[in-house]
Each structure stands twice: as structure tokens, then as C-alpha cells.
Design a protein around this nucleic acid. Structure first.
Length: 291
DNA sequence: TGTCAGGTCCTCA
DNA sequence: TGAGGACCTGAC
């Protein structure tokens, strides 16, 4: 990978496994919006970034070399060799190989654990546009104004302290629905017990999964998503309706319960279960396989 | 008008 | 343990 600094931009050349569409549309994040020109704009760590693919180049707009080194290199997981991961997964079986070919540019973003916790609580029994809207409402009301980009104002995701200013009714007004009390209680839980989200990153996967489920509104699936996308637990295997479908279509899994399906997937793909899940999930959802 | 969506919680056996 | 129902919301 070659890194080139231009005016207010960083350009990445010769990146093998990086496609903004795959990365931002594979269901791992909710705060990147697609612009009319096909690029994506989002907010991370108080910075607004726009990402586009121009031929073989990846263009990161509205940034500089320092922020690239401090934030974006880690956020986009650029130290990881996705080619070798894909090679290993593709060798596992034909279906996974097809899924990897289809979503070749997926990378698992290293997102903020606290933001993932609240975001995936909102995701339960919900649709993606509604999830995005609720998170945006929360950010606009309780986060901090970051600035403008191409005429639009952007806000940071609120800290636990900032979000604690919201009542259950306030959260309902943000269109979180019946999850309002889950968010309220989880936020209160963190502040009152002085829980540090960073501690979850140091836990082993099983402990992390179990501890996350102690928060109200966090069941097995949501816990796995938070662990995978916010806590670097790459052996997590979130099982939702889509993954259940793919396991039955591709892997002869019988109609088993979700906890059993979770174990089935973790046993099947081992320490790379999270990566396998992402390629499979993106593949079946885009192709609407098994629906 | 009824169903359904990237689940979780609660209740009851 | 496991099954069954309720649950905000809004798009079809």
C-alpha cells in the first residue's frame, strides 16, 4: 500500500482489499451515509471523513497524514492482511469462496465499543434505515457538533455522560421505540458502576460475550455484534435471521435454535468466525439467498 | 388493515 | 432449557 498526501486528502494506492461499498454496506456500521457521487461520509473520533474509490485509488477526503496515522489506519484495520484471511476462508468450502469473491473489499472496522453497544441495542428487531435514523437523532441531540462538510452539519456520538442527560421519554422521541428503556438503563448502568468500555477489549471472547449480555437489551446476537465490531473479538459469530438462513442453505444445518447455531458456526470457522460471518452475511443479504 | 424487520425480555412449563 | 407472546415504528 502506498500512502500519498494531497491537499486535505490522503490517497491510498495498491490496496488489495478495500471497497467502500462493501465496507459500509455489509451491516457493521450505521453512521456512514452515501453521497450522490457514490462516496461515503461519516464521523469517527470527532472527525468528518469522506471515502471514495477512484479506480484503483482509495481517496480519504477532509483529512491529513497525522489523522490518518492516529485514527484512520487503525479504524480501517489497515494493518491486517485480508488477502491471507480470504485465502484461508476460500479454501474452507465453495460457498464461502463465492461469498469472499462477492464481498472482496470488506474490512471489519475497528469501531468504538460504547457506540456499538448502544447502536446494536437499537438494532434489535429493527430495520437498518430506522436504526440509522435513531442513532442520528441521538447524536444530533446529545452529541457534539463537529462541523460541516459539503453543506451538512455533523455530530459526534454522545459519550455516556452526555447520553445520561436523556430521559426515557427523550429517547423515545429519538425514535428508538421500545428500546428506549434499554438504552437508558444501560447508560445508567455504565455510569453508576463506573464501568470502563476499554476493559471489555482486554477480556477473552467468552467473558466479553457474557459480560456484555448483562446490559439490558443485549442478548446473544447483539452481544456478538458488539464484541466483533467494537471489542476486536474476531471469533464472534453473530447469528441473525440471515445467518441462520445461510447456515441452513449452505451448511446443512438443521432448524436449530439460535444458541446452537452460534456454536455450530464458531466450531465450523474457529478463530476466523467473525470474518466468515461478514462475508456470508453480505453475500446472502445482497443476493437474497434463502428468502 | 395486516405483516414484518439484523432480537430481547418475560412468563410459564 | 425452551417455547410463545409482546413490543415501537413505518414501509409495503
Amino acid at each position: 500500500m502506498i500512502i500519498e498526501e494531497r491537499e486535505n486528502q490522503i490517497v491510498l494506492k495498491e490496496v488489495d482489499d478495500f471497497n467502500p461499498v462493501h465496507i459500509f454496506d455489509c451491516g457493521q456500521c450505521f453512521r456512514w451515509t452515501k453521497e450522490n457521487d457514490g462516496s461515503y461520509t461519516g464521523v469517527v473520533k470527532g472527525k468528518i471523513l469522506n471515502v471514495s474509490k477512484n479506480g484503483q485509488e482509495i481517496v480519504l477526503d477532509n483529512t491529513n497524514l497525522k489523522d490518518f496515522e492516529d485514527i484512520w489506519y487503525e479504524y480501517f484495520d489497515l494493518a491486517r492482511d485480508y488477502s491471507s484471511i480470504k485465502k484461508e476462508l476460500a479454501a474452507h468450502d465453495k460457498n464461502l469462496s463465492d461469498a469472499v469473491d462477492f464481498g472482496w473489499g470488506i474490512r471489519i472496522l475497528q469501531q468504538d465499543g460504547w457506540e456499538m453497544l448502544i447502536s446494536f441495542i437499537i438494532s434489535s428487531n429493527n430495520r437498518i434505515p430506522m436504526i440509522q435514523r435513531a442513532i442520528n437523532n441521538i447524536s444530533e441531540r446529545y452529541g457534539q457538533e463537529i462541523g460541516e462538510y459539503k453543506g451538512k452539519t455533523y455530530y459526534s456520538f454522545p459519550t455516556p455522560e452526555q447520553l445520561s442527560k436523556a430521559s426515557i421519554e427523550d429517547l423515545r422521541e429519538c425514535k428508538t421505540g421500545f428500546r428506549d428503556k434499554y438504552i437508558f438503563n444501560t447508560t445508567k448502568d455504565i455510569l453508576e458502576n463506573e464501568l470502563d468500555i476499554q476493559d471489555f477489549l482486554d477480556m477473552d471472547s467468552a467473558t466479553c460475550h457474557k459480560e456484555l449480555m448483562k446490559f439490558q437489551g443485549v442478548g446473544a446476537k447483539v452481544s456478538d455484534c458488539i464484541a466483533l465490531f467494537g471489542m476486536r473479538k474476531y471469533d464472534s459469530f453473530p447469528v441473525d435471521v440471515w445467518v441462520k438462513r445461510v447456515m441452513q442453505e449452505f451448511y446443512d444445518a438443521e432448524d436449530m435454535s439460535l444458541p446452537k447455531m452460534r456454536k455450530y458456526g464458531m466450531d465450523l470457522f474457529g478463530e476466523k468466525a467473525g470474518f466468515a460471518q461478514q462475508y456470508l452475511f453480505y453475500y446472502v443479504r445482497e443476493m437474497e439467498i434463502g428468502k
